[in-house]
Amino acid sequence: MPVETWLYFTLGFMILGSIIALEIKDILSSIVAIGVVGLGVSVAFLFLQAPDLAIVQFLFEIFAMIILVRAFVKKDYHAETPARVNGFLVAISMLVIIAIFVSSISVFKLLPPFGQPLFETAQHYVDHGVRETGAVNLVTAIILDYRAYDTLGEVTVLFTAILGTITILRIRNGKNAGRKGA
């Protein structure tokens, strides 16, 4: 089967999974459905010839699910509160989103068809990557050699985000100063 067929299947599955995740009332089911969507992304990366990305996406999904389940499910497990649904807001949002989707069709027609990429800048990396960096995996060559400063910035952003997380979780309320932090 051509790769497009598999991708249609995977993408349809992901759209369905994300709609289920957003509409279901039970929070644990919702988080699990998002995990399924993320694993679908990983499978799609495999079909699109990106094994490094598939591995990273898989790990990301596992970690994200561990964080979400650990943070929300164990402590006070809750179903989404059955608040009165604001029908007006939902209808307006649906209308706007459908309008955006329909009007974007003509924009996507301008893109080159699937399988014929526009980028040509990376041809240099493909041609000279091994000789210049000595890495047979060109993704690694780009991350750690050609664009090493990008990676440094990425690590900085990640460090800042983790630092922020730790800081936020360590702040204690004045009343609960003696209690153990979350």
Binding site: L53, F60, P117, A122, I143
Partner: peptide, 14 residues
């Protein structure tokens, strides 16, 4: 396939 978007998306996922 083009390795450059793969490298940048790897950054974005992390």
């Amino acid at each position: 396939v083009d390795p450059l978007p793969q490298a940048l998306v790897l950054t974005s996922i992390v």
